[in-house]
C-alpha cells in the first residue's frame, strides 16, 4: 500500500511520547488488576502484538521489579478465513516456553477491530493447556466488533469508519513508534495536515499492516481496506479535515 501513501488522508493518533506514557499506564493497570508479575504471562499475537507484549513486560518490571514471561503466538492456523485466501500464508513461529496451566494469560495485540484475531488467539492458547483466565491488552481499540470480545487494557479508544486503517508502528519492527489513522476513501491529496508534524508521516513503503496484509490479519480487515460500505463515522482524537 506504500504506493498510495500520498493519497491517504492521515491523522496521527499517538506519537512516540504518547505511546511510552500509555505503556506505563497499562503496565500499572495490569499489576493492579492481575497481581504480581509471577502470576501472569504476556502473549503477543504476531506480528505487532509481540513488541507490545515486550514493552509491557519491561514496564511491568519497572513498576513491580519482576518481568513477566513473554510468549509469541502465530494464529494463522486458527484463522476463520483461510479458505477465502488464495494461497496459504507463511507461518511464523509460535514460542510459548512456559506452562499456561493455572496462569493468567494476557493476550497482546496492537489493534482490536473485529475481534476475530483474538478469537483465534484464545483458541490457540487453549491448545497449550487451561489457563486460569485470559485477558486482553491492546494499544488501540478501534471498535466495529464482529464478535463479543472486549479488551481489559486499552491504550486508546478510537471510533473509526470501515474504510479507515489504523497503522501502528513500533521501534522494534519498523524503526519508530507511531499510530496513524489513514483513510483510503479520500483519494485526493490532503492539503492541510494539522495534526501531522512535517516529514514524519507514514512514508512510502512504511509498514501499515492494518491495511490489507494477508499475513496474520483476518478477513474483515481486508474488507475494510477493500472499501466496505461507508457509514456514519463519529470520531474522537485529532480532527479529520478534508
Amino acid at each position: 500500500m506504500g504506493e498510495a501513501a500520498g493519497t491517504y488522508k492521515k491523522v496521527r493518533l499517538i506519537d512516540a511520547t504518547g505511546m511510552q506514557r500509555i505503556f506505563a499506564r497499562m503496565a500499572r493497570e495490569l499489576v493492579e488488576t492481575v497481581g504480581g508479575a509471577e502470576t501472569f504471562a504476556l502473549v503477543g499475537i504476531r506480528t505487532r502484538g509481540v513488541p507490545l507484549a515486550q514493552r509491557l513486560a519491561l514496564e511491568v518490571e519497572r513498576a513491580d521489579g519482576t518481568r513477566p514471561p513473554v510468549g509469541l503466538l502465530d494464529i494463522t492456523l486458527y484463522r476463520d478465513d483461510l479458505s477465502t485466501v488464495a494461497s496459504s500464508p507463511v507461518l511464523k513461529r509460535t514460542e510459548i516456553s512456559f506452562p499456561v496451566e493455572a496462569k493468567t494469560i494476557v493476550l497482546c495485540d496492537d489493534v482490536l477491530f473485529t475481534g476475530r484475531t483474538v478469537r483465534a488467539a484464545i483458541d490457540a492458547i487453549l491448545d497449550f493447556g487451561r489457563p486460569r483466565r485470559i485477558l486482553l491488552a491492546v494499544l488501540v481499540d478501534r471498535g466495529r466488533r464482529e464478535l463479543p470480545i472486549e479488551a481489559q487494557f486499552v491504550g486508546k479508544r478510537v471510533s473509526t469508519s470501515a474504510t479507515e486503517i489504523v497503522s501502528v508502528t513500533f521501534r522494534e519492527t519498523d524503526g519508530h513508534d507511531d499510530v496513524w489513522l489513514l483513510d483510503r476513501e479520500a483519494a485526493r491529496p490532503v492539503r492541510k495536515r494539522k495534526a501531522a508534524p512535517k516529514g514524519d508521516g507514514p512514508r512510502k513503503g512504511a509498514p501499515a499492516r492494518r491495511a490489507a496484509g494477508p499475513e496474520a490479519s483476518p478477513a474483515p480487515r481486508r474488507k475494510a481496506a477493500a472499501g466496505a460500505p461507508r457509514r456514519k463515522a463519529p470520531r474522537s482524537g485529532p480532527k479529520r479535515r478534508s
Binding site: L77, Y78, V90, L91, K92, D127
Partner: peptide, 26 residues
C-alpha cells in the same frame, strides 16, 4: 525452504498438550 520452515511451525504443534489445530476443518 518454505516447506522446511513451515514444518518447523508444525513441529511446535506436535509438542503441545493438545496436538491439533483447526486449520483444515471441513
Amino acid at each position: 525452504q518454505l516447506v522446511l520452515d513451515t514444518a518447523e511451525s508444525m513441529r511446535e504443534i506436535n509438542q503441545r498438550t493438545i496436538k491439533k489445530v483447526p486449520t483444515l476443518r471441513g
